[in-house]
Simulated assay, not measured.
Amino acid sequence: MNTEATAREAERAIVDEFAYFGDWTERYQYLIDLGRRLPPLPPELMTEEHRVHGCQSQVWLVAEGDARRLEFRAASDSAIVSGLIALLLRVYSGRSAEEILATEPTFVQAIGLAQHLSPTRSNGLAAMLKTVRAHAERALAAA
């Protein structure tokens, strides 16, 4: 459940939060803490159908709703990737398909994630974003 009214507001709040941390050790720890707070994904949803391909870690992402409002739930077997999921859900879950598609993940660059993620984690983040956008596109097409 998002407390921010828009995806852009969620991104600004994330950027503000990460600005509090002086170095990347603290930022990684914050990411891990965010991931630990994700609600668990029921094992019956951890299926091939919901698996995000392109991630080195195991990632499952479930979309529910329609073009007016899409809710996402997700999980990973990696602590840092779980934190990345928490950020993505904060920005994109509970939004309309149009807002999801109109919102580029500017927070990734703004907080320095782009420079500090390993290539495999960057690829995984891109795969998760692509999956979220694909769900939004399908919801719009079905509307």
Rank of each mutant, 00 (worst) to 15 (best):
M1T: 13
N2P: 13
N2M: 06
A5N: 13
A5E: 15
T6Q: 12
A7H: 06
E9Q: 15
E11R: 08
A13T: 05
I14D: 14
I14Q: 14
D16W: 06
D16T: 14
E17Y: 10
E17F: 08
A19P: 13
A19F: 06
Y20D: 15
F21K: 14
G22Q: 14
G22M: 11
G22A: 15
D23V: 02
D23R: 13
T25R: 15
E26N: 08
E26A: 15
R27W: 00
Y28W: 11
Q29G: 06
Y30D: 00
Y30E: 14
D33M: 11
L34F: 01
G35R: 06
R36E: 14
R36V: 03
L38T: 02
P39M: 06
P39K: 09
P40T: 05
P40V: 00
L41D: 12
L41Q: 11
P42G: 05
P42A: 12
E44I: 01
E44F: 01
E44M: 01
T47H: 02
T47E: 03
E48H: 04
R51A: 07
R51C: 00
R51E: 07
H53R: 12
Q56S: 05
V59Q: 07
W60N: 04
G65Y: 05
D66G: 08
R68G: 06
R68T: 10
R68P: 00
R68W: 00
R69K: 14
R69N: 10
R69F: 05
L70K: 03
E71H: 12
F72L: 14
A74M: 07
S76A: 05
S76Q: 02
D77T: 02
S78R: 04
A79F: 05
I80T: 14
V81R: 09
S82N: 05
L84R: 01
I85A: 05
I85Q: 07
L87R: 07
L87N: 04
L87Y: 04
L88Q: 13
V91W: 10
V91E: 07
V91Q: 07
S93H: 07
S93M: 06
G94Q: 09
R95H: 02
R95Q: 10
R95S: 06
R95I: 09
A97W: 11
E98P: 03
E99S: 03
A102C: 05
T103C: 12
T103A: 11
P105D: 10
P105T: 01
T106S: 12
F107G: 09
F107N: 09
F107A: 08
V108G: 09
Q109L: 12
A110G: 06
G112D: 11
L113S: 07
L113W: 01
A114G: 01
A114H: 13
Q115T: 00
Q115C: 01
H116L: 04
T120Q: 12
T120V: 12
T120I: 04
R121W: 03
R121V: 00
R121M: 03
S122I: 02
S122A: 15
N123P: 00
N123S: 12
N123Q: 12
L125K: 11
L125N: 09
A126S: 13
A126E: 11
M128S: 03
M128P: 03
K130L: 07
T131V: 04
T131G: 02
V132K: 02
V132M: 04
V132R: 02
H135K: 09
H135P: 00
H135V: 00
L140K: 09
L140E: 09
A141K: 15
A142W: 02
A143V: 07
A143S: 15
